[in-house]
Design a protein around this nucleic acid. Sequence first.
DNA 1: GTTCTAGAAC
DNA 2: GTTCTAGAAC
Length: 308
Amino acid sequence: MSNLGRGAGWNKALVNYAKTVDPKRSLDPSVLVACDEKTITIRDGYPKAKYHYLVLPRIPFQLEKAAAVRDQVHQDEQQGSSKETLRVSGGRLSLGPSKSDRIPPFHLESLESVLASPHCEQVFSALRRSRDVAVDLMRSEMVKDRQDGRSWDIMSGFHAIPSMEHVHLHIISNDLVSEKLKNKKHYNSFRPDLGFWLPFEEVESYVHQGLKKLPKGKKEYESLLKSPLVSFRDGSVHSNLPGLKAHLLSCWEGEMSKASGGPGSSPPPSSSSTPPQPRQAGDQSRLKRKSSQATSESEDEVVLRLKR
DNA sequence: GTTCTAGAAC
DNA sequence: GTTCTAGAAC
Ligand SMILES: Nc1ncnc2c1ncn2[C@@H]1O[C@H](COP(=O)(O)O)[C@@H](O)[C@H]1O
């Protein structure tokens, strides 16, 4: 388990987390945020903002039987199979969990494979539940960490083309202020207004519409990562990363110091953001300036301890 | 000379 | 994905 960052197997780290049998026992509390029957939420190992979690469907992922039959019906309809086949698969007699009641692990390899899976509704249903929990936990953590008890926008979404194996939902504070944000690809992959970042609700709506793949192709998404360094805050263009990072820090500090609507006031807990309209390079705006462990029976077992 | 980017890693 | 670092850019 030594080659986490570099070397062969670097892209398997999240699969290992997803396979954890007893996360509360075997994962360090500094890593584990929460878990339930279907998902596990961890802290991102290289956070690209002040707060950054990952929600992973667990392996094995147990299917709800009634829903699994619906999945099968849906799949059969799409494939035009006979009702005879449907009766056999849907009417199978079985008692208790069995291997055939689990999502085949390869369906969970990536966002693309989840979308293509007949079980994507169940995966997204579990992700939504855990997303909501994770956002609440992150907000609590923000409040706890600040003397003034403020919190700010939290985004949840996917990278259109992920690098790490196993589908993972990013939950990330919308500041993008982090020492670990080191290159253009990092920034553009989380820029909410570019198109590589896919808000959770957007992908969820694809699932509900029955769309089985993303609207754009791989090459198209990848080309977005090479876009110039445009601030998601005000559309300003930056000629290098250190300059952009200084700008992002000052924007966040500004947001934190401006007058608020009162004690405890914070932005609505929406997880998407509405960015400003991109501004044309060359106009007169600022350009290129140098530089508590839950007990066993709860639905969502919250592991993150919130100190008062 | 220092800062910054971007490609190799067996 | 990360780390390391050569050499481009300033
Ligand atoms: N060993 C690791 N442990 C925890 N998180 C990781 C690890 N390696 C990479 N990550 C994170 O996994 C995420 C993968 O992002 P992506 O595949 O681009 O959606 C990134 O945010 C990384 O910081």
